[in-house]
Computed example of a mutant assay.
Amino acid sequence: MKITQAHEAEWTTVSNHRGGRIEFKTLLIGTEGAPDNYYLSLYKAFADFVAPAHRHNFDQIRIGLSGKLNYGKHKDILPGEIGYFPEGQHYGPQAQEPNSDCVGLVVQFGGASGHGFMSQRQLREGFHALCQVGTFVDGVFRTSGDTPPTGVTKNRDGYEAIWEAVNGRPIEYVQPRYGAPIHLHPHGFAWQEINDDDRVLIKPLGTFTERSIELSQVKLASGAIYEFPLRAGIRLVYALEGEGGCNGRTWTKGTAIEIAADECARFVATRESLLFVHGLPIFASHDVADPAAHREALA
């Protein structure tokens, strides 16, 4: 089990491959190279942040905490709302409203295809390497001069340019499983009792793809105890409200917790609490033994 307190992390920039200013508080990171690698962080998008219409070869979950997170024309994630951006799905262009900063929680992770997720270390190092041969303008990488270096594409989406420079091959996208990003309004879902105990409530928000990507919320009354059922994949928990303990560790509002596959996790609330729960995709052992072969099978 991993636990990180948000108040102990500092706001930093990872790279500037998009336009304007955005900062992150790194909370938890997964295993680089694994198909379920992930990056869980708080993000702060400032009023000048922009990004062109684009797509990713990984999945992304965003939760609004304050302000409006724009992800397209007349499309904003408000506090308490959740956006699921599946791999291969276009969205954007993004532009924050004038004088409108926002803060949210974001999980970027390898999607059901098994293509994985480029780590923040790789992203940062790739960004600095490309800055030696070009510039990033409003989310687009532009090479210096008329002839780009071998293997570097001129006027390319910033993330795509970095990914290809890091991996040394063209980026691949799967056929989108959904017709658009999924915008969830958790307040419209009903709470359900667990084991006829009204002190422990769960709000299932959805299970996505053949890899059982799960989203839910759990509400615990003061003094309530909840033991998560065992799960074959990683489960991420973020405390939106409250405080308590888990397996001998203390958590408060803003705590992020990774529960490993098949790990027991017993939560005890010392005050009323609200938890966001995200189950990462579940891969069978034969899916992760040879990621390269798995990619070829999907091509």
Rank of each mutant, 00 (worst) to 15 (best):
E227F: 07
R295N: 02
G30H: 10
S216V: 00
T270H: 12
N195I: 12
E87K: 07
K73V: 02
G114E: 07
T143Q: 13
P181W: 11
V166T: 06
L42T: 02
G134I: 05
H294N: 06
S285C: 06
E227V: 06
Y173P: 09
L40G: 00
G104D: 09
F58M: 01
P291F: 10
T150F: 11
T135W: 13
R249H: 13
N70E: 02
H286Q: 10
A165V: 01
A161L: 07
G244D: 04
H115R: 04
V103E: 15
V268N: 03
P176E: 02
L123N: 08
Y226N: 10
E23F: 12
G158Y: 06
A299S: 04
A297N: 05
A95R: 15
N37A: 10
E10D: 13
F85C: 01
A289K: 14
G233Q: 09
F136Y: 08
L130R: 04
E272Y: 01
R62E: 15
G248Y: 12
R156H: 05
L275I: 04
E210L: 08
L220P: 05
E32N: 11
Q192I: 03
G72A: 06
E8M: 07
K2G: 00
D48C: 13
Y43W: 09
Q192L: 14
E296M: 09
K75T: 03
V152E: 04
A256M: 02
G158T: 03
I194H: 07
W11G: 02
S212M: 12
C102Q: 08
T209M: 06
I202L: 09
F276M: 03
T250E: 11
G134M: 06
R295Y: 01
Q120A: 01
R121F: 05
N195Y: 14
W11H: 11
V103C: 08
W11R: 12
E258M: 15
D198L: 12
A112K: 09
Y173V: 02
S216M: 10
G92N: 05
N70C: 05
M1P: 13
G168Y: 09
L215M: 09
R211Y: 08
R55E: 05
A232Y: 09
R199Q: 14
D59S: 10
A161I: 10
D198G: 04
H278P: 00
N16W: 12
P79H: 12
T26A: 11
G72D: 07
I3N: 04
F136H: 01
A221E: 15
G92W: 15
A34C: 06
K203M: 10
A34D: 11
A256S: 03
A297G: 13
Q5L: 13
G179V: 04
G126F: 06
D59C: 10
T135P: 03
E125N: 14
Y173N: 08
L220F: 14
A289I: 12
D36Q: 11
L78S: 09
E81I: 00
G110A: 02
I63V: 05
D76A: 09
Q5S: 11
A6R: 08
L130Y: 04
R266M: 13
R266G: 15
L240N: 03
N167V: 00
A284F: 09
L275N: 03
A265M: 13
P281R: 05
P52L: 08
K44R: 15
R169S: 05
E81W: 07
